[in-house]
Amino acid sequence: MQIFVKTLTGKTITLEVEPSDTIENVKAKIQDKEGIPPDQQRLIFAGKQLEDGRTLSDYNIQKESTLHLVLR
């Protein structure tokens, strides 16, 4: 499924993921596309910060959901 990741600069990254993918996994995909190390990434969905060990389905993230990427 496709999800979108919006950065603070207003750029939107499109990722191909599975509901069973972990947040860690998603961060690795963002690193592949954008070169941002996962340890600098914070992903936010519905106002919650997403934890590395959880999966997209844990957070009920469905196709075409938009996550927000904050760098630390």
Rank of each mutant, 00 (worst) to 15 (best):
A28K: 02
T55N: 05
I36Y: 05
T7W: 07
I36C: 02
L71S: 14
E64A: 06
P38Y: 05
I30A: 04
T14S: 07
L43H: 01
E34H: 03
D58E: 14
K63A: 04
G47M: 08
V17L: 13
S65H: 12
Q40C: 03
L8V: 13
S57L: 05
L69A: 04
Q40Y: 07
Q49G: 12
G47R: 04
Q31A: 11
D52H: 14
E64V: 06
V70P: 02
V17N: 02
A28Y: 10
I23S: 04
D58C: 02
T66E: 14
Y59Q: 09
H68Q: 14
Q62F: 15
S20V: 09
K33Q: 05
Q41Y: 12
N25I: 08
I61L: 07
A46Y: 08
E16Y: 14
L71I: 05
S20P: 10
G47K: 07
I13D: 01
T7Y: 12
K6L: 15
E16S: 05
V70S: 14
Y59K: 01
P19L: 14
V5A: 04
E34V: 09
T9R: 06
K6G: 14
K11D: 15
G53I: 07
Q49M: 04
K6Y: 11
K63W: 11
Q2I: 06
K29L: 06
L69Y: 02
L50M: 14
T12P: 08
E34I: 05
T55F: 04
I36F: 13
K6T: 13
P37Y: 13
P37V: 12
L8R: 04
V70N: 05
F4A: 06
I3V: 14
H68P: 01
V5M: 05
E18D: 12
Q31T: 15
E51Y: 12
K29A: 09
L15K: 00
Q41P: 02
T22E: 09
D21E: 06
I36Q: 08
D58W: 10
D21R: 05
Q62P: 10
R72E: 15
D32C: 03
D21I: 08
L15C: 02
E34A: 13
G35Q: 15
K11L: 07
I30V: 14
I36A: 07
P37F: 10
K33T: 11
I23H: 03
L56A: 05
Q40R: 04
